[in-house]
Amino acid sequence: MSRFRPPAWFVLLLPAIIILAAVVLVPLILSFYSSFTPYKLTRPETLYKWIGTFNYEKAMKSAHFWAAFGRTVLLLTIALNLEMLMGLGLALLVNKVTYGQRALRTIMMFPMMFSPVLVGFQFKFIFNDNVGLVNNALQSLGLTDRAIPWLVDGQLAFIAILTAEMWSATSVFAILILAGLFAVPRDPIEAAKVDGCTPWQSFRHITLPYVMPFIYIALAIRSLDVARAYDIVQIMTNGGPARRTELLWTLIGRTGYVDAKMGYANAMGYISIFLAIIFTVYFFRKLNAARSELGMAG
């Protein structure tokens, strides 16, 4: 009677599989399952009550959910693009500096050292309508004689949140792109100079293609990590007032932890994840199609 012996590759991979299953798979399956239950944190027995797609239907029919979804997509699109452009600009400027560059690079990293909660409090104070820095400065300079409600008006609050988010994250782009700039070889740039290229031409056709992979990496990292801005938004406006700055993070966070409705919160989370995956696949295909038209596929 021979005993079953699993293949060696499986045995070797087993520790990794067990750890992955424990920290990724189990929570994922549990949260997905709970989205089909009326699971409430304060009533653990509700985890065993199956209610089918009730939570999903409720979220799909909720105008508040879709408004928050749209606002989140808008915030991500604007924030990531502006951060990328400003980070690129900052990196190009710092790259030109010959004396004190190390000190500059260190200073550039300061915002990354602040926890998002602190950034939230800092900008909440800066944009406070009564005692905030921005209003006091504007009033002292005689630019306005009224208290501008930065965190109350929907569009102004959006700008305030965007400013806080960009302040804290632009340097991530700058640092990663700067690393890319250091890797650009000098020869082609000097050759381009000799051939009479303008600075813009050498940037567009030599520097940028070299830096592009770094920009993609920075975009990928930031798009995954941008939800950290939850803390900033939570502190600054918590989605309010009157849901004017409600994002998916604040809505789901409040539903899950304050209302204790974890089942419903998970359903909203999964709808957002599925939609994000569908969008990503769609845009990726579009991008690839565009690249192959330009002869850049490969």
Binding site: N128, D129, N130, A147, I148, P149, W150, L151, V152, T237, G240, P241, A242
Partner: peptide, 12 residues
């Protein structure tokens, strides 16, 4: 009332 009062809590 201050225009930002809708975002005020006890500390504010």
């Amino acid at each position: 009332v201050p225009p930002g009062t809708t975002s005020y809590l006890w500390d504010d």
